[in-house]
């Protein structure tokens, strides 16, 4: 795919596949176009060249109705969690379930409690997002992303801004959900710890190349990548950076 902002080229010739059930990390330095890429992958914006296919359906080619159907099979956790501030955590999670399923109200309530149990927020159903910590908001955002039991989960910086312990808990939660539910997970991050803990495969973008400079097992990339940019990312040395 190709992505431009005006005359400014952001991504040029980026091409990769995500396999069913895997956890793929898209990583790279700030400004390399990770979030730009994700916004295209979830169909919020269109690419300027090329195509993105989900379950074989081209996002740019399919109509709005098709896209809506596809979106029900996708869960997204935004970097800021993007919870609706005027609704409780429970209402936030219930929102897509009530809209897209025929479940009766009492069953929706039970399901919301289950989703909140899954992310460890069972006791916070009636709290507003503003009453929760950053880590809790991320988990609530994850519960909402999981509301319709999606096939594919997109996570934008799921553990950014969290303390190491909370970040590790979030990583474990993502891995646990992906393993047990068989969800395909695409995770955008530049947290080394998350990449190593969670990702089975990684795709690395570079702001200068405006595309992919490496892809594969992140542990192998860290240990033996021949690409200098990849080595520096995984093993940052202060003298080299400065």
């Amino acid at each position: 795919m190709v992505v431009r902002y005006g005359d400014h080229l952001i991504l040029d010739g980026v091409s990769f596949e995500v396999y069913k059930g895997e956890i793929l990390a898209i990583l790279g330095r700030s400004g390399c176009g990770k979030s730009t890429l994700m916004r295209r992958m979830i169909g919020l914006e269109t690419v300027d060249g090329g195509e993105i296919r989900i379950h074989g359906c081209d996002l740019s080619g399919c109509g709005e109705h098709e896209l809506q159907k596809l979106r029900r099979r996708i869960g997204v956790l935004f970097q800021s969690s993007a919870l609706i501030g005027s609704m409780t955590i429970g209402q936030n999670v219930a929102l897509p379930i009530a809209e897209h399923t025929d479940l009766p109200l009492h069953a929706i309530h039970d399901l919301v409690r289950m989703k909140l149990c899954m992310v460890g927020l069972a006791e916070y159903e009636f709290f507003l997002p503003s009453q929760l910590s950053g880590g809790m908001r991320k988990r609530a955002g994850l519960a909402r992303a999981l509301a319709l039991s999606p096939d594919i989960l997109f996570l934008d910086e799921p553990s950014a801004g969290l303390d190491p312990l909370t970040a590790a808990e979030m990583d474990a939660l993502i891995k646990h959900i992906s393993d047990s539910m068989g969800t395909t997970t695409v995770m955008i991050t530049h947290e080394l710890r998350s990449i190593m803990n969670v990702a089975q495969r990684a795709v690395m973008l570079d702001p200068e190349v405006k595309g992919i400079i490496a892809q594969g097992d992140p542990r192998e990339m860290q240990a033996s990548s021949p690409v200098p940019g990849v080595r520096r990312f995984f093993n940052p040395v202060l003298e080299e950076v400065t």
Binding site: L116, C117, M118, A122, E123, F126, H176, I177, S180
Partner: peptide
Amino acid sequence: MVNFSGHRKCTPPAR
């Protein structure tokens, strides 16, 4: 994960 067994049943606090 969803505490089905009921030993750790999710009972949110009453409003």
